[in-house]
Nucleic acid binder design. Sequence first.
DNA 1: ACCTATTTGTCCGTATGTATG
DNA 2: CCATACATACGGACAAATAGG
Lengths: 115, 115
Amino acid sequence: MLVTVDEDSATPMYAQIVTQIRHGVATGAIKEGDRLPAAKELAEQIGVNMHTVLRAYGELRDAGLLQLRRGRGAIIRQGSKTKASQVHRMADRLVTEAKRQGVSKEELMGLIERM
Amino acid sequence: MLVTVDEDSATPMYAQIVTQIRHGVATGAIKEGDRLPAAKELAEQIGVNMHTVLRAYGELRDAGLLQLRRGRGAIIRQGSKTKASQVHRMADRLVTEAKRQGVSKEELMGLIERM
DNA sequence: ACCTATTTGTCCGTATGTATG
DNA sequence: CCATACATACGGACAAATAGG
């Protein structure tokens, strides 16, 4: 599983990491039970600070996709693929419907952001 | 609204801040529309780093209780009291029921933590 | 329209603590 | 006891949005 970040992007780097891992789980590139690289390790690979990776891991834990344990690492939880692809499907339907209704991307993003 | 933190507590300082503000909203000590002190300010008052306060504010924002805007500050959102007190009531019922069932505090905490 | 101060947002580096193996 | 790896906190830096003069 390859993670990359664009430091000049408007979306924060930790969010980019979250999105890519989510996507990896949804597509099956990352499987349930898989162990992600240690935060320090991934951080060095992609050229960011360890905290940036830990923040991403923390968000995924809060979303229920990741199990974090000190000394052990970050493991993808059972049921994560379903969860991740559920979100994928819902997001897909939402975007499709928004497009059909003539709702602009900006409007949609603003709407979601205000929630 | 008075916030204090115990640096020797087992619960993180940012979590202590979150709990106290939640409680303040639930009891009415903090009202909807009220502006919390700037992170830097509150941090100085209670003797923690600004980032620790910002982390607490961020959690409250994620929970839907706070509206954070750069340059403006942290404002309690409308409906926060209902939300906060809903959680209060549910927690209260849970604790009562657990006690009635003979479930120890440790068991209950562990149960919740694993979710 | 411009400048300045305020305040949150992100990221970095460092330090220390704590659970796991 | 020791290495690993997440967890929390601090401090500093810069960016970006907001408000006010």
